[in-house]
């Protein structure tokens, strides 16, 4: 899916998420206003508890806002139904996680094909693209390996391939280098940058690390659930 570079692909107004824990309330994010144009590489910075994960989960359609407006790739995430959100997660965004989150009983190839299969494609239809992604990521010799047989860097690259299988417009990465050594971390950031530059994908990276700072086109800071100047 392609989005024009000039149009805001993510637009949030007064975005708030409040968690109720027993009698108390915890504010995840509060009154966040945001506009991200298509084709940007955004680095989201903030300490633990700043609200990065909350914001990412809202953008990924994993959670719904308590208040405010949120449009992502022309999807009003406040008003979409569950089935529309499912379609959104399949086709519009691709998620990359800190702890990789590969299914342990599936091979690398199968993990990559999984979102396509969930979207209703057959294995025959999804395999060519998966193979192309594996080759691009240097994993073609690992396609039949289980996650337990891959290194950390290989697992994260597999996860990147999985995120790209359905050709989403937006890639969301939550601390993608958090469990990698600096060399592999650098590789991953460069891959994400390549996705942004060459493939014109909007990439949003939530991270403590400074590896992505140089490549970012937009930097956003978060503190105590609110947007601040990036550190």
């Amino acid at each position: 899916m392609n989005v024009e570079k000039s149009q805001p692909v993510i637009s949030a107004k007064g975005l708030t998420r409040v968690y109720r824990l027993g009698d108390s309330e915890v504010i995840g994010i509060s009154q966040v206003n945001l506009e991200i144009a298509g084709g940007e590489l955004v680095v989201l910075k903030g300490n633990s508890g700043s609200g990065k994960s909350t914001l990412l989960s809202l953008l990924a359609g994993l959670d719904r806002p308590s208040r405010g407006e949120l449009m992502v790739a022309r999807h009003d995430l406040n008003k979409t139904s569950d089935s529309q959100l499912t379609h959104f997660r399949r086709q519009v965004v691709g998620m990359i996680f800190q702890s990789f989150n590969l299914l342990p009983t599936l091979t690398a190839l199968e993990n990559i094909c999984l979102p396509a299969l969930l979207a209703g494609k057959s294995i025959a239809e999804s395999r060519p693209r998966a193979m192309a992604l594996l080759e691009w990521l240097g994993l073609d010799a690992r396609l039949n390996h289980l996650p337990a047989q891959l290194s950390g860097g290989e697992m994260q690259r597999t996860a990147i391939a999985r995120a790209l299988i359905n050709d989403p417009a937006i890639i969301l990465a939550d601390e993608p280098t958090g469990n990698l050594d600096s060399r592999n971390g650098q590789i991953v950031i460069e891959l994400l940058a390549e996705l942004n530059r060459k493939w014109n994908r909007t990439v949003l990276i939530a991270t403590h690390s400074t590896l992505a700072d140089e490549m970012a086109t937009v930097k956003i800071g978060l503190r105590d659930g609110m947007i601040t100047d990036p550190p």
Partner: peptide, 16 residues
């Protein structure tokens, strides 16, 4: 739960 949430995140519906 982590695996199931991952499935959800990569596009599985509740029904699936």
């Amino acid at each position: 739960s982590q695996q199931l949430n991952t499935l959800f995140a990569v596009g599985a519906s509740f029904r699936q």
